[in-house]
Amino acid sequence: MKQAKVLTEAEFKRVLAVLGQGKHAQRNRTALMLSHYAGLRVGEIATLRWSDVISTDGEIVQQFYLKPEHTKSNEARPVHVSKRLQRELSVYKSCFKQQIRLTEPLIPSQKRGAFSANSLCQLMGRLYRDAGIDGATSHSGRRWFITRLAHAGVSPKVIMTLAGHRSLATTQRYIDVNDEMMSKAVEVL
């Protein structure tokens, strides 16, 4: 089975530029950023509520927990929110003129209800296609997240835990390797 494409930095910027010109730009950008900067699956993103990412004092949290019923493994897991993702969520929050109801979906569909995992998967596929990127799917962000952490030297055990995998072998299958990375690797010697 062919794996989802891991975007290059230029491709990632192109997707952000293209989706910035479309309808629901900030919502779509936030969904994409949750995939790329938190490594979340589309099914996990679809289940998020504002109460997951906003603290009781109205600030964007540094960590939240996915409920067991919202994960592939049926196990709760923490999601650590980087400063970059916190800024993205804060910008997204500021787009709402009315008071945010914490029980509402973080990423609402056009009908104001929650996206289904399938609908969000289709939306992400369309965003990548609109940017002219072949082979990218809703899983590309998750692979990007895991690959970037691996190439930054983050411990495989930490990456496995952040991804919510039970096996290191599963995590390793997500890591993309290309010629540029291999050339840089041998230059370390």
Score class of each variant (00 low, 15 high):
V91Q: 11
T103F: 13
Q63F: 01
H80Q: 14
R101F: 15
E69S: 10
K67I: 00
E75M: 05
S73T: 15
Q63D: 11
R84T: 14
V61L: 09
R101H: 15
N74D: 04
D57F: 06
E88K: 02
V79N: 01
Y65H: 13
G58Q: 05
R101V: 08
L66H: 03
K93P: 03
P68M: 01
D57R: 07
Q99K: 14
K97S: 13
T56Q: 14
K83A: 12
L85M: 11
T103W: 13
L102H: 10
Q98W: 07
Q63T: 06
P78W: 02
V81S: 04
R101Y: 14
Q99L: 14
S82I: 06
T56L: 12
P78L: 05
K72L: 08
R84C: 09
K67R: 14
K93N: 08
Q99N: 13
K93H: 12
F96H: 15
K83G: 12
E88V: 04
R101G: 09
L89S: 03
Y65E: 13
K67F: 00
T71W: 03
Y92T: 03
F64E: 07
K93A: 02
V61K: 09
L102M: 12
L89R: 02
F64W: 09
R101S: 15
S90N: 13
S90E: 14
T56V: 12
C95N: 13
S82P: 06
Q86G: 02
R84H: 12
E88S: 08
V81W: 05
H80V: 10
V61S: 06
Q98R: 15
R84A: 13
L85K: 08
I60R: 07
L85P: 03
R87D: 11
R84Q: 15
V61F: 03
Y65I: 05
E88C: 09
T56W: 03
T71F: 01
R101M: 11
L66E: 01
V91F: 04
V81R: 07
P68N: 04
K72I: 04
Q99S: 15
L85T: 01
V61I: 11
K97R: 15
K72A: 05
L66D: 00
L66F: 04
Y65F: 07
R84I: 13
S94H: 10
F96C: 02
D57T: 13
E69L: 00
H70C: 04
S94M: 08
E75N: 13
E75A: 01
V61A: 05
V91K: 07
E59T: 11
Q62S: 14
I60P: 02
K67C: 00
K83P: 01
L66Q: 09
N74G: 00
Y65C: 01
T71D: 01
Q62L: 08
E88A: 09
E88I: 03
N74L: 06
F64C: 03
K67Y: 06
R84M: 12
L102S: 00
G58S: 10
N74I: 02
I60F: 00
Q86C: 08
P78E: 06
Q86L: 06
H70V: 01
F64P: 08
F64A: 03
K72W: 03
E75C: 04
V81N: 05
A76T: 02
K67W: 04
D57Y: 01
V81T: 05
P78H: 11
N74A: 02
D57M: 05
S90R: 11
S73W: 00
